[in-house]
Design a protein around this nucleic acid. Sequence first.
DNA 1: GCCGTTATCTACAATGATTGTTGAAGAACA
DNA 2: TGTTCTTCAACAATCATTGTAGATAACGGC
Lengths: 157, 157
Amino acid sequence: MGDRMRTPEELTELFRSTGRKVTAQRQCIFRVLQGDVTHPSAESVHALASREMETISLKTVYQTLYDLAELGEIAPLDVGTGMTRFDPNVDDPHHHLVCRQCGRVRDLVAAFPELQIPEGADLGYQVGSAEIVFRGLCPECQPAARGRRAPLKQAQI
Amino acid sequence: MGDRMRTPEELTELFRSTGRKVTAQRQCIFRVLQGDVTHPSAESVHALASREMETISLKTVYQTLYDLAELGEIAPLDVGTGMTRFDPNVDDPHHHLVCRQCGRVRDLVAAFPELQIPEGADLGYQVGSAEIVFRGLCPECQPAARGRRAPLKQAQI
DNA sequence: GCCGTTATCTACAATGATTGTTGAAGAACA
DNA sequence: TGTTCTTCAACAATCATTGTAGATAACGGC
Protein backbone atom coordinates (compact mmCIF):
# COMPACT_ATOMS: atom_id res chain seq x y z
CA MET A 1 0.00 0.00 0.00
CA GLY A 2 1.41 3.30 1.15
CA ASP A 3 4.83 2.55 -0.19
CA ARG A 4 5.34 6.12 -1.22
CA MET A 5 3.91 9.51 -0.44
CA ARG A 6 0.91 11.17 -1.91
CA THR A 7 1.44 13.05 -5.15
CA PRO A 8 2.13 16.78 -5.15
CA GLU A 9 -1.42 17.27 -6.46
CA GLU A 10 -2.95 15.34 -3.58
CA LEU A 11 -0.84 17.25 -1.09
CA THR A 12 -1.84 20.53 -2.70
CA GLU A 13 -5.48 19.58 -2.27
CA LEU A 14 -4.87 18.48 1.31
CA PHE A 15 -3.11 21.71 2.21
CA ARG A 16 -5.86 23.83 0.74
CA SER A 17 -8.58 21.83 2.40
CA THR A 18 -6.96 22.33 5.78
CA GLY A 19 -6.72 26.07 5.36
CA ARG A 20 -3.04 26.14 4.43
CA LYS A 21 -1.88 28.13 1.46
CA VAL A 22 -0.13 26.47 -1.40
CA THR A 23 2.94 28.27 -2.57
CA ALA A 24 5.53 27.55 -5.22
CA GLN A 25 8.00 26.70 -2.43
CA ARG A 26 5.70 24.13 -0.94
CA GLN A 27 4.97 22.49 -4.25
CA CYS A 28 8.67 22.31 -4.89
CA ILE A 29 9.11 20.51 -1.57
CA PHE A 30 6.24 18.15 -2.40
CA ARG A 31 7.98 17.27 -5.63
CA VAL A 32 11.29 16.66 -3.92
CA LEU A 33 9.73 14.34 -1.36
CA GLN A 34 7.82 12.43 -3.99
CA GLY A 35 9.53 9.10 -4.48
CA ASP A 36 12.32 9.79 -2.03
CA VAL A 37 13.07 6.65 -0.04
CA THR A 38 16.22 7.86 1.67
CA HIS A 39 14.57 9.42 4.73
CA PRO A 40 16.08 12.82 4.02
CA SER A 41 16.93 15.44 6.59
CA ALA A 42 15.58 18.97 6.34
CA GLU A 43 19.01 19.95 5.14
CA SER A 44 19.00 17.51 2.24
CA VAL A 45 15.45 18.38 1.23
CA HIS A 46 16.60 21.97 1.16
CA ALA A 47 19.60 21.09 -0.97
CA LEU A 48 17.40 19.34 -3.53
CA ALA A 49 14.76 22.05 -3.48
CA SER A 50 17.42 24.72 -3.99
CA ARG A 51 18.27 23.20 -7.35
CA GLU A 52 14.84 24.29 -8.56
CA MET A 53 14.39 27.40 -6.45
CA GLU A 54 17.60 29.23 -5.71
CA THR A 55 16.22 31.35 -2.92
CA ILE A 56 14.16 28.88 -0.93
CA SER A 57 15.09 29.14 2.73
CA LEU A 58 15.85 26.32 5.11
CA LYS A 59 13.26 27.71 7.49
CA THR A 60 10.57 27.22 4.87
CA VAL A 61 11.63 23.62 4.42
CA TYR A 62 11.43 22.93 8.15
CA GLN A 63 8.07 24.64 8.32
CA THR A 64 6.61 22.63 5.46
CA LEU A 65 8.03 19.35 6.71
CA TYR A 66 6.41 19.91 10.08
CA ASP A 67 3.15 20.87 8.38
CA LEU A 68 3.28 17.56 6.55
CA ALA A 69 4.04 15.78 9.80
CA GLU A 70 1.07 17.48 11.45
CA LEU A 71 -1.11 16.21 8.65
CA GLY A 72 0.28 12.72 9.11
CA GLU A 73 1.85 12.59 5.66
CA ILE A 74 5.41 12.09 6.86
CA ALA A 75 6.93 11.18 10.21
CA PRO A 76 9.91 12.80 11.91
CA LEU A 77 12.42 10.19 12.89
CA ASP A 78 15.48 10.20 15.11
CA VAL A 79 17.89 7.37 14.45
CA GLY A 80 20.85 8.94 16.17
CA THR A 81 22.55 10.42 13.13
CA GLY A 82 22.54 13.90 14.58
CA MET A 83 19.61 15.31 12.71
CA THR A 84 15.93 14.61 12.31
CA ARG A 85 15.08 12.49 9.32
CA PHE A 86 11.67 12.51 7.67
CA ASP A 87 9.99 9.26 6.77
CA PRO A 88 7.47 9.44 3.93
CA ASN A 89 6.12 5.99 4.72
CA VAL A 90 3.49 6.37 7.41
CA ASP A 91 1.11 3.65 6.29
CA ASP A 92 3.00 0.40 6.60
CA PRO A 93 4.09 -0.59 10.07
CA HIS A 94 7.84 -0.82 9.76
CA HIS A 95 11.22 -0.37 11.37
CA HIS A 96 14.54 0.98 10.18
CA LEU A 97 17.87 -0.12 8.81
CA VAL A 98 20.66 2.35 9.48
CA CYS A 99 24.09 2.13 7.90
CA ARG A 100 26.84 2.49 10.48
CA GLN A 101 29.13 3.95 7.89
CA CYS A 102 27.23 6.39 5.70
CA GLY A 103 24.09 6.87 7.78
CA ARG A 104 21.78 5.77 5.00
CA VAL A 105 18.34 4.90 6.37
CA ARG A 106 15.91 2.49 4.74
CA ASP A 107 12.62 1.01 5.77
CA LEU A 108 12.41 -2.53 6.98
CA VAL A 109 8.82 -3.39 6.35
CA ALA A 110 7.90 -6.09 8.79
CA ALA A 111 5.93 -6.50 11.97
CA PHE A 112 7.35 -8.41 14.89
CA PRO A 113 4.30 -9.63 16.78
CA GLU A 114 6.51 -12.15 18.55
CA LEU A 115 8.18 -9.29 20.38
CA GLN A 116 6.70 -9.90 23.79
CA ILE A 117 8.17 -8.25 26.83
CA PRO A 118 8.89 -10.91 29.44
CA GLU A 119 6.81 -10.76 32.61
CA GLY A 120 8.15 -8.20 35.03
CA ALA A 121 10.73 -6.78 32.66
CA ASP A 122 8.56 -3.78 31.78
CA LEU A 123 9.23 -2.08 35.14
CA GLY A 124 5.63 -0.96 35.30
CA TYR A 125 5.69 0.93 32.02
CA GLN A 126 2.51 0.90 29.98
CA VAL A 127 4.12 0.13 26.66
CA GLY A 128 2.35 1.40 23.56
CA SER A 129 4.83 0.90 20.76
CA ALA A 130 8.31 -0.16 19.88
CA GLU A 131 10.78 1.10 17.35
CA ILE A 132 13.58 -1.12 16.21
CA VAL A 133 16.73 0.27 14.67
CA PHE A 134 18.79 -2.37 12.92
CA ARG A 135 22.38 -1.26 12.47
CA GLY A 136 24.79 -2.61 9.94
CA LEU A 137 26.34 -1.91 6.59
CA CYS A 138 24.31 -0.94 3.58
CA PRO A 139 25.11 -2.68 0.28
CA GLU A 140 27.21 0.27 -0.89
CA CYS A 141 29.35 0.28 2.24
CA GLN A 142 30.01 -3.44 2.41
CA PRO A 143 33.52 -4.69 1.80
CA ALA A 144 34.20 -6.25 -1.57
CA ALA A 145 33.28 -9.84 -0.67
CA ARG A 146 30.31 -10.10 -2.98
CA GLY A 147 29.09 -13.63 -2.44
CA ARG A 148 28.45 -13.29 1.25
CA ARG A 149 24.87 -12.65 2.30
CA ALA A 150 24.73 -13.26 6.02
CA PRO A 151 26.81 -11.64 8.72
CA LEU A 152 29.69 -13.76 9.92
CA LYS A 153 28.11 -14.14 13.30
CA GLN A 154 24.41 -14.09 14.05
CA ALA A 155 23.63 -10.71 15.53
CA GLN A 156 22.86 -10.81 19.24
CA ILE A 157 19.58 -9.01 19.72
CA MET B 1 25.75 -9.29 37.00
CA GLY B 2 26.68 -5.86 35.81
CA ASP B 3 23.51 -4.35 37.10
CA ARG B 4 25.31 -1.25 38.15
CA MET B 5 28.53 0.55 37.47
CA ARG B 6 31.88 -0.06 38.99
CA THR B 7 32.56 1.73 42.24
CA PRO B 8 34.37 5.07 42.31
CA GLU B 9 37.40 3.19 43.67
CA GLU B 10 37.44 0.77 40.79
CA LEU B 11 37.05 3.58 38.29
CA THR B 12 39.86 5.49 39.97
CA GLU B 13 42.09 2.46 39.59
CA LEU B 14 41.00 2.01 35.97
CA PHE B 15 41.68 5.64 35.10
CA ARG B 16 45.13 5.55 36.64
CA SER B 17 46.02 2.28 34.96
CA THR B 18 45.14 3.72 31.59
CA GLY B 19 47.31 6.77 32.06
CA ARG B 20 44.49 9.12 32.94
CA LYS B 21 44.77 11.40 35.94
CA VAL B 22 42.30 11.19 38.74
CA THR B 23 41.00 14.53 39.87
CA ALA B 24 38.48 15.58 42.48
CA GLN B 25 36.08 16.48 39.66
CA ARG B 26 36.29 13.03 38.17
CA GLN B 27 35.77 11.30 41.46
CA CYS B 28 32.77 13.47 42.06
CA ILE B 29 31.35 12.36 38.71
CA PHE B 30 32.10 8.71 39.53
CA ARG B 31 30.12 9.12 42.74
CA VAL B 32 27.20 10.73 40.97
CA LEU B 33 27.01 7.95 38.39
CA GLN B 34 27.25 5.27 41.02
CA GLY B 35 23.83 3.73 41.46
CA ASP B 36 22.13 6.03 38.95
CA VAL B 37 19.62 4.05 36.91
CA THR B 38 17.97 6.99 35.18
CA HIS B 39 20.30 7.17 32.16
CA PRO B 40 21.23 10.75 32.91
CA SER B 41 22.26 13.35 30.36
CA ALA B 42 25.52 15.25 30.68
CA GLU B 43 23.42 18.18 31.85
CA SER B 44 21.86 16.25 34.70
CA VAL B 45 25.15 14.69 35.78
CA HIS B 46 26.50 18.21 35.88
CA ALA B 47 23.56 19.40 37.96
CA LEU B 48 24.14 16.65 40.51
CA ALA B 49 27.90 17.11 40.55
CA SER B 50 27.47 20.85 41.07
CA ARG B 51 25.80 20.19 44.38
CA GLU B 52 29.12 18.87 45.65
CA MET B 53 31.47 21.02 43.59
CA GLU B 54 30.14 24.47 42.83
CA THR B 55 32.61 25.26 40.09
CA ILE B 56 32.71 22.04 38.10
CA SER B 57 32.24 22.82 34.44
CA LEU B 58 29.91 21.13 32.02
CA LYS B 59 32.83 20.59 29.68
CA THR B 60 34.56 18.50 32.32
CA VAL B 61 31.47 16.38 32.71
CA TYR B 62 31.25 15.73 28.97
CA GLN B 63 34.93 14.95 28.89
CA THR B 64 34.76 12.46 31.73
CA LEU B 65 31.62 10.81 30.40
CA TYR B 66 33.30 10.25 27.06
CA ASP B 67 36.39 8.93 28.82
CA LEU B 68 34.20 6.43 30.60
CA ALA B 69 32.56 5.55 27.31
CA GLU B 70 35.96 5.01 25.74
CA LEU B 71 36.82 2.63 28.54
CA GLY B 72 33.56 0.79 28.00
CA GLU B 73 32.18 1.67 31.43
CA ILE B 74 29.13 3.51 30.17
CA ALA B 75 27.44 3.78 26.78
CA PRO B 76 26.16 6.92 25.08
CA LEU B 77 22.57 6.48 24.04
CA ASP B 78 20.22 8.43 21.79
CA VAL B 79 16.56 7.73 22.40
CA GLY B 80 15.25 10.81 20.67
CA THR B 81 14.85 13.04 23.73
CA GLY B 82 17.07 15.72 22.28
CA MET B 83 20.21 14.96 24.22
CA THR B 84 22.61 12.10 24.64
CA ARG B 85 21.90 9.91 27.62
CA PHE B 86 24.52 7.75 29.30
CA ASP B 87 23.80 4.18 30.17
CA PRO B 88 25.82 2.72 33.02
CA ASN B 89 24.74 -0.81 32.18
CA VAL B 90 27.08 -2.13 29.53
CA ASP B 91 27.21 -5.76 30.62
CA ASP B 92 23.70 -7.10 30.21
CA PRO B 93 22.32 -7.15 26.71
CA HIS B 94 19.25 -5.00 26.99
CA HIS B 95 16.92 -2.51 25.36
CA HIS B 96 15.15 0.62 26.57
CA LEU B 97 11.85 1.83 27.91
CA VAL B 98 11.23 5.51 27.28
CA CYS B 99 8.39 7.47 28.83
CA ARG B 100 6.49 9.50 26.26
CA GLN B 101 5.60 12.06 28.85
CA CYS B 102 8.59 12.71 31.09
CA GLY B 103 11.35 11.16 29.02
CA ARG B 104 12.44 8.82 31.81
CA VAL B 105 14.58 6.00 30.44
CA ARG B 106 14.94 2.58 32.03
CA ASP B 107 16.59 -0.63 31.00
CA LEU B 108 14.56 -3.50 29.71
CA VAL B 109 16.81 -6.43 30.35
CA ALA B 110 15.89 -9.07 27.82
CA ALA B 111 17.25 -10.55 24.64
CA PHE B 112 15.02 -11.18 21.67
CA PRO B 113 16.79 -13.96 19.78
CA GLU B 114 13.55 -14.74 17.97
CA LEU B 115 13.80 -11.40 16.20
CA GLN B 116 14.56 -12.64 12.70
CA ILE B 117 14.45 -10.33 9.73
CA PRO B 118 12.21 -11.89 7.08
CA GLU B 119 13.95 -13.01 3.89
CA GLY B 120 14.48 -10.14 1.52
CA ALA B 121 13.36 -7.44 3.96
CA ASP B 122 16.92 -6.49 4.84
CA LEU B 123 17.47 -4.68 1.51
CA GLY B 124 20.96 -6.06 1.33
CA TYR B 125 22.11 -4.59 4.63
CA GLN B 126 24.57 -6.65 6.63
CA VAL B 127 22.85 -6.28 9.96
CA GLY B 128 25.01 -6.45 13.05
CA SER B 129 22.78 -5.34 15.88
CA ALA B 130 19.41 -4.00 16.78
CA GLU B 131 18.25 -1.52 19.36
CA ILE B 132 14.69 -1.53 20.48
CA VAL B 133 13.06 1.48 22.07
CA PHE B 134 9.78 0.68 23.76
CA ARG B 135 7.67 3.78 24.23
CA GLY B 136 4.91 4.22 26.71
CA LEU B 137 4.08 5.70 30.08
CA CYS B 138 6.24 5.17 33.11
CA PRO B 139 4.51 4.26 36.37
CA GLU B 140 4.67 7.87 37.59
CA CYS B 141 3.06 9.25 34.45
CA GLN B 142 0.24 6.76 34.23
CA PRO B 143 -3.32 7.99 34.80
CA ALA B 144 -4.88 7.14 38.16
CA ALA B 145 -6.43 3.80 37.15
CA ARG B 146 -4.29 1.70 39.45
CA GLY B 147 -5.56 -1.79 38.83
CA ARG B 148 -4.82 -1.87 35.14
CA ARG B 149 -1.61 -3.55 34.11
CA ALA B 150 -1.84 -4.05 30.36
CA PRO B 151 -2.47 -1.46 27.68
CA LEU B 152 -6.05 -1.38 26.43
CA LYS B 153 -4.98 -2.61 23.08
CA GLN B 154 -2.04 -4.87 22.37
CA ALA B 155 0.69 -2.73 20.95
CA GLN B 156 1.29 -3.29 17.24
CA ILE B 157 4.97 -3.90 16.86
C1' DG C 1 58.18 16.80 50.53
C1' DC C 2 59.53 19.19 46.16
C1' DC C 3 59.91 19.49 40.92
C1' DG C 4 59.10 18.94 36.36
C1' DT C 5 56.23 16.93 33.01
C1' DT C 6 51.99 16.36 31.25
C1' DA C 7 47.07 15.91 31.64
C1' DT C 8 43.12 18.27 33.14
C1' DC C 9 40.68 22.27 34.67
C1' DT C 10 37.62 26.48 33.96
C1' DA C 11 36.07 30.08 31.22
C1' DC C 12 34.87 31.40 26.91
C1' DA C 13 34.09 31.23 22.06
C1' DA C 14 32.38 28.45 18.17
C1' DT C 15 29.70 24.96 15.94
C1' DG C 16 25.54 22.71 13.89
C1' DA C 17 20.74 21.81 13.96
C1' DT C 18 16.71 23.98 14.81
C1' DT C 19 13.37 27.76 16.14
C1' DG C 20 11.78 32.69 16.81
C1' DT C 21 10.96 37.34 14.71
C1' DT C 22 9.79 40.76 11.34
C1' DG C 23 8.49 43.36 7.53
C1' DA C 24 7.64 42.26 2.70
C1' DA C 25 5.35 39.39 -0.73
C1' DG C 26 1.90 36.24 -2.21
C1' DA C 27 -2.47 33.08 -2.11
C1' DA C 28 -7.29 32.70 -1.44
C1' DC C 29 -11.69 34.43 -1.83
C1' DA C 30 -15.23 37.93 -2.19
C1' DT D 1 -9.08 43.82 -8.29
C1' DG D 2 -8.88 44.47 -3.37
C1' DT D 3 -8.72 42.66 1.22
C1' DT D 4 -7.16 39.57 4.44
C1' DC D 5 -4.53 36.38 6.34
C1' DT D 6 -0.65 33.19 5.53
C1' DT D 7 3.77 32.35 4.28
C1' DC D 8 8.13 34.02 2.67
C1' DA D 9 13.26 35.13 3.21
C1' DA D 10 16.55 37.05 5.93
C1' DC D 11 18.02 37.56 9.80
C1' DA D 12 19.04 36.67 15.06
C1' DA D 13 18.54 33.41 18.93
C1' DT D 14 18.53 28.95 21.11
C1' DC D 15 20.18 24.44 22.70
C1' DA D 16 23.33 20.67 23.03
C1' DT D 17 27.83 19.98 22.22
C1' DT D 18 32.77 20.75 20.97
C1' DG D 19 37.09 23.61 20.36
C1' DT D 20 40.68 26.76 22.37
C1' DA D 21 43.92 28.65 25.73
C1' DG D 22 46.15 29.73 29.56
C1' DA D 23 46.02 28.49 34.51
C1' DT D 24 46.25 24.55 37.64
C1' DA D 25 46.84 20.18 39.58
C1' DA D 26 48.26 15.02 39.46
C1' DC D 27 51.83 11.78 39.16
C1' DG D 28 56.53 9.80 39.08
C1' DG D 29 61.21 10.66 40.29
C1' DC D 30 64.40 13.00 43.21
